[in-house]
Design a protein around this nucleic acid. Structure first.
Lengths: 307, 307
DNA sequence: ATTTGTCATAAGCTGTACTTATTCCTGCGA
DNA sequence: TCGCAGGAATAAGTACAGCTTATGACAAAT
């Protein structure tokens, strides 16, 4: 096993540069004997002579020359380690793996990825889009760094931060546009179209209608919000959409959108990460960034819908 | 200034491999707290977290992963330093700069370079052919590693080792082939052709004739032994040749070669190097190699001349 | 012969990096 | 709900690596 130390290499490099023990030692801010001893030790460990000691002048041996070249490479690499660390000090660096649920992903992702790429240059973002339980598992396992889901998650090992509230909107056929908005209790008497089992948004909607999610549901299940809206458009029933999805999903369908009366149904979207994550500080800042983006996004949509 | 130590990198690498402080410490043959402390110190020096400490399991941070990659590179490089040293232990390595005087070079070099290249693979040989005083200076200055010259040199800072003795042969016109070989004292009454000032062989020849080298000399000077032989061939006079040069130089000239009577004139060819040279051991072995080659060479020539 | 430049050696001190023992935290099982 | 156990951090003590200053050795220059 090599027991070479960096100190020895640094000292040697200095000596190679100065070809003078005294001056090399000065350059290293140590005494001449200290440097002599380290060099000698280095030579012992290598089992080779690096320096040819003349009376009036020293000189590198052939091997010393070759050695010095490699040593300089190594020392540079080590210095780069420090720089690498400093570069990653503030600001995410490298890879950030974000998990996100399907009922948010299409609407929020374009915005936040654009923003992230802008703010954190040289950050490569991996996105994992899947259902909440899987995200939680993957977060716990360290396969992702953070996740954007509906709160609460109530995992004690996670930190959760709210990003924004989003209301649920009623989506019905455009010919029903002028009908009054039904009370929540009446919804399950209408034909309410929902996402397949497993989506948290399904459970949230059912809960709003006063139906326990465990109870079997005879409605039609869609695999995406987009599908649901299309189904509504052709008169198969009504559905709920998260506020954020409205602008995108109802653009090309003949449906009408209405707000519920207060208290409006809503959910809290938040970000979660392991409490032990060293990215905690950055993730918190990131969450603020995303929260703002989301609010800006909503305002834009509201303005658009008023026009 | 980075104060990262090598130990820290080794420990970290082990930890990265095992993702477990205890086992990593075992692998490094130290106690778990020792490893913990070094890792912590490394993190402090970097100002970054490398390890995400979970309660039941630890994991590398993103930066830790990136760091580990580079660290492995560095560790490998350092290990290679040791191997490099070991490889250069016995046997010359890299560059060997040999100085050699012109009256030996053409006859000895082909043999020894061939031999050296064969014995020491991966040795690149530089040859400096010039007069003895320059060689001595260059050797003292470290611009060459060793020199092959006529002994003695009598520099106290040099080691000198005899390689072989070589006799001087009389070279005269082929029409004089049957004349008796003159005594050395008679030589200076004949037209003795010699090399230019500065060649040690000139001084050796003059000394043999009983003429101090300082004394001005009215003979014709040639710039190489080859020239001298040509001059002898066309009847301009006689000359002396080192034994070793005979075979090559008299091949294509109509001259006759004769030995002197005992005590034959001769010179000792030897190798010199700085006493401080770390190559001393190898150079000694090298000198034995060259000495043998020279003797073999001479025997071949003697056999050839008998036929 | 003396001085000077330069590196090696000596002796003593200090702080680093180990050791073992203990504490703290958290997840797990009764 | 409470120990209990796994696993890392902390604490206290110790040994030695590596520094310092002082001195020695040696060759070169004067």
């Amino acid at each position: 096993m090599t027991n070479i130390t960096f100190k020895q290499l640094r000292y040697f490099e200095s000596l190679a540069r100065h070809t003078h023990f005294g001056r090399a030692a000065d350059a290293c801010a140590i005494s001449q004997p200290a440097l002599s001893m380290q060099i000698k030790e280095l030579e012992d460990e290598l089992g080779t002579t690096l320096i040819e000691r003349g009376a009036r002048q020293i000189r590198l041996t052939n091997f010393g020359e070759a050695f010095a070249l490699r040593v300089r490479d190594i020392l540079r690499s080590v210095d780069e380690l420090g720089e690498l660390a400093r570069a990653s000090q503030d600001g995410l660096v490298g890879r950030l793996r974000i998990g996100i649920i399907p009922t948010i992903a299409p609407y929020l992702l374009p915005t936040i990825i654009g923003k992230l790429n802008h703010v954190y240059k040289d950050l490569d973002i991996h996105v994992r889009e899947t259902l909440t339980p899987k995200l939680i598992q993957e977060l716990a396992d360290g396969r992702i760094d953070t996740a954007i889901v509906a709160l609460p998650v109530s995992e004690p090992s996670f930190t959760e931060v709210a990003l924004f509230e989003e209301n649920f909107m009623l989506v019905r056929s455009s010919k029903d546009a002028n009908k009054p908005v039904p009370e929540s209790e009446l919804l399950h008497e209408m034909r309410l179209l929902l996402l397949e089992e497993g989506h948290c948004f399904r459970d949230q909607a059912l809960s709003f209608c006063g139906v326990p999610s465990a109870r079997p549901w005879e409605g039609l299940d869609g695999s995406s919000l987009s599908t649901l809206v299309q189904m509504v458009g052709v008169g198969l029933g009504v559905t709920l959409l998260p506020e954020m999805a409205v602008a995108v999903e109802t653009r090309s369908a003949s449906v009408s959108v209405a707000s519920f009366k207060e208290p409006q149904p809503s959910r809290t979207i938040g970000m979660i990460w392991r409490k032990t994550s060293p990215l905690a500080a950055q993730l918190l800042r990131l969450s603020e960034l995303i929260g703002q983006s989301a609010i800006v996004l909503r305002n834009e949509h509201e303005q658009a819908s008023r026009n």
